[in-house]
Design a protein around this nucleic acid. Structure first.
Lengths: 208, 208, 208, 208
DNA sequence: TATGAATGAGTATTCATTCAT
DNA sequence: TATGAATGAATACTCATTCAT
């Protein structure tokens, strides 16, 4: 097993000045990822776009991977706050409403920065430290399991763990595919239809 | 827009000798992809492993991408024949049986060469000619739409196109995730449970 | 001829605090040199290990070379005091005793800090200001010439200068090689044999 | 223990063309080593001076170290043939003649390419694969032991192994120092004196 | 005086691809 | 048709040193 490239930031940006540098680097990485793709994102290029010397890049990040991971993390946090916010509003409503909201939230999340989301999901070799760079699912999964748990009496599933896996995978795949690959085909009203269908699919499955 | 690297084989392998060379190259590519990962798969290395000179490689393939595409295609054909064979056997049975068989087929397909499947799906930047290197779905999609069409009267869906999309995406995502990322967790009996669950999910959805 | 990097300390450490800083830097350099080798000894690393800011390092030393030179000088002083102490005890004894003591002293000197000695002698490019970083010989040479001069009547050599050169070079080479490269092979008793042999060699040469 | 940089040539230069390339690279390395010193000898510079692309350099050598080793080896072979040739002529003469010839040979050897010899001996960090890049002594040692063995009855030494070590180390150190550091001081006639002195030193030692 | 953020020239190395033989 | 020597742009990363705070 070859040693993986490190992905954790090298030093904390303590002073204000360095904070700016770090942000510029992460932002530049995101911009290049979206605009030119993963393998144009060389460290030299990132530094140049960030308006920062290559030396400074390496003061704060141990390498390219760490930058991509930082971008993915930032993206993940944004998604998560979108999902959390929406979910909070329906915590006490019946299952059908909850699932509906969740699916809608997933679509909304995929629309936060679809281009970045696509690069993160499809262009980045999921290997080494990048393996779950886009794995915002773990957080989502926990969130969702808690929700399902709280609604357990409305459901008819034997294995909650399995059900969570099935639901999350399904919702993620459908919204991802729809938003990222069929946005053109699926006009707005049809997207609403998809949300409805997905909700029906999941609710039907859970209340079986 | 930068010109994409060409991905089509350069010439037909008419003579027997060429045929052997081409096969050796594709096989070597696959072996390296699985054994060492996408970015160790350099053209020089592929040629070396294939026991062929780098010059010859470029006689038959316009570049690296073309080789990967060829590997993906070969893999796709294998998958497709697995799915087709299984589907043929249930063409005349009721929907529930058909869907069950399809899900089982999807699992079987993912087990043909999981390591290669994983590399193709997760390590290769889905960009340019590689965009749908792993997109064996197109074929599957057509196959499945035809099947659903033939069983339309057992179903209660308004939009067949949409339903096909929903079902295929769901089945693909669930089996992919299950086989490639949770094979350890999902022991054999639980895998059977997953097949059952997935079938219930889809059948429930289709029959309203 | 490119300008040589300066190797003299920048300012006198007049205040106590500075003194501590300078010592910490020299000590850190020595520790890194021994523990990780010459080319891991970057200025940044030295400063870090010394617990001093890189800025401060440059307040007291004009560059990396100066630090290494300082380490070498410190080492040289230690060696010299070892040799001097031993030599003082035999100043009035006949040649054979004197030479014997000198050889033993040379061995003892090489054992003061063999690891540092080795790095200084073998890993550091003897170029520029580093040219005689390990050249503790100059001092030794003077010391030894004086001793030989005082025993001139016991000797039968035409050219004292030449004889000094021959003796010093020989003793240094033999003890260095023995201690640093054959310490494993030359067990303690054999090392004593070497001291005896070397003494015989030199005394034989001087007394014709 | 960190993995050492490899020092063995990467591929054999089978065709005539590549032979030329390899030679040019080794020659260029030597020239840079002598003219600009070890740490100006970057791979890019070596390739440039050799009039060869950097890519070609890496076809034949795994890195910088390997080139330096190749240079050292080439140099060693030249030295060895000088020494061997001279030694052959006195194989049957008495010890005093033999030692005299050997010392003269050592001086001659150091004069083959003194500048290169100096760089190899003093500027190259004797670490890793470079550790005995300049260790032409091993061959010499064997050669010399055989010679001493054949003259054993003229000698009065208890431990032949030790005697060989003492003689070789002494001769090497004296000639090295004389030729490389005191060439200016030691004019030709004085150099002859040194040869005589050294011979006397050694013969005296061996014949007790 | 001390700090540490910033610099950027410089270094080793890879790899897709070409082309003379 | 096959070969493999040659290419060189591109890449990740280091490190001595400066200077504003």
């Amino acid at each position: 097993m070859p040693p993986r490239p490190p992905t954790k930031p090298r030093k904390r940006a303590s002073q204000e000045r360095s904070r700016v540098t770090v942000d510029a680097l992460v932002e530049a990485t995101a911009r290049i990822l979206v605009g030119e793709g993963f393998d144009k994102a060389s460290t030299n290029r990132i530094a140049a776009v960030a308006g920062v010397s290559i030396g400074s890049l390496y003061q704060y990040f141990p390498g390219k991977e760490a930058l991509v991971v930082a971008v993915a993390q930032r993206h993940r946090h944004e998604l998560l706050s979108v999902v959390r916010a929406r979910l909070a509003r329906v915590a006490d409503e019946p299952l059908a409403q909850g699932i509906g909201a969740l699916v809608a939230a997933a679509v909304a999340a995929h629309r936060v920065d679809p281009a970045l989301h696509r690069v993160l999901a499809e262009e980045i070799p999921r290997v080494g430290g990048l393996a779950d760079a886009a794995g915002f699912n773990r957080d989502n999964l926990a969130l969702f399991r808690d929700y399902l748990q709280s609604r357990r009496d409305e459901m008819r599933v034997a294995d909650l763990e399995l059900a969570t896996f099935v639901c999350m995978t399904t919702i993620e795949a459908l919204t991802h595919n729809a938003v990222l690959h069929h946005a053109d085909v699926l006009a707005d009203e049809r997207m609403e239809a998809l949300v409805a269908e997905t909700t029906r699919l999941i609710v039907g499955y859970l209340t079986g």
